[in-house]
């Protein structure tokens, strides 16, 4: 299993993502700059958190037009596994790979704390390895308030696209949404950080199951 970790100017969770899949999961990975234009040889794409392009204009709006993005859109459209965390989630909505949008938390505060999540769809390529339906992952965002219109919400509910919900909604997200997939189930965006919860030494390990699920789904050896 070989992951590409995309590095935009202003990404700051790229090294954590790399550490999670290489040192904790045991897969291989490469930090791939936003200027790259090919994803040949990769089995999965990880878009990390941070403040790509300084969050100018809107979170993820400028990153969405980076040179690497056409390759990511092709990769996703061909069924490749793409995970966007935090700013990565914002990039995926801006790119139209996921429905809806993310805006300011209702409290207007940047929230950095552990949150309890319900796995609302355990049968996805990102959650199949979990044996529990409740996990704890940290969040760290100011603009994680998920919005979509009622029709889109109904469609996502019918398709099982809502994968994670907050048990105690911290940011005002519609329907307590913390993470969603596209209709095909191969692209996941989520505000909580699984890559920050992969080793007991740092307090949490519930993020590892997500990367294990991705590895199982691609049916490639670690």
């Amino acid at each position: 299993m070989r992951f590409a970790v995309i590095v935009f100017p202003g990404s700051n969770c790229d090294e954590d993502m790399y550490h999670a899949v290489v040192d904790q999961l045991g897969a291989s990975a490469q930090l791939l700059p936003h200027t790259a234009t090919s994803l040949a040889g990769f089995d999965g794409v990880l878009i990390p958190g941070g403040f790509s392009y300084g969050d100018y204009l809107r979170c993820g709006a400028i990153a969405r037009f980076s040179p690497i993005m056409p390759a990511i859109i092709d990769f996703a459209n061909q069924g490749g596994l793409v995970l966007g965390v935090c700013n990565g989630f914002q990039v995926l909505t801006e790119a139209g790979l996921l429905p809806g949008a993310l805006h300011e938390n209702t409290s207007l505060e940047f929230i950095c704390k552990d949150t309890q999540l319900k796995i609302t769809n355990p049968n996805t390529r990102f959650t199949s390895a979990y044996t529990t339906d409740t996990i704890t992952l940290p969040i760290a965002h100011g603009e994680g308030n998920y919005y979509c219109d009622p029709d889109t919400l109904a469609q996502m509910q019918a398709n099982g696209q809502i994968v994670f919900t907050y048990t105690d909604n911290p940011n005002g997200s519609v329907a307590d949404i913390a993470g969603i997939t596209n209709a095909n189930g191969n692209v996941l965006g989520m505000m909580p950080h699984p890559e920050r919860a992969v080793e007991a030494l740092l307090g949490l390990t519930d993020g590892l199951g997500l990367f294990e699920s991705m590895a199982q789904a691609t049916k490639t050896a670690l």
Partner: peptide, 8 residues
């Protein structure tokens, strides 16, 4: 294309 996110 860029200045506006028409979703919101």
């Amino acid at each position: 294309k860029l200045l506006v996110n028409v979703n919101m």
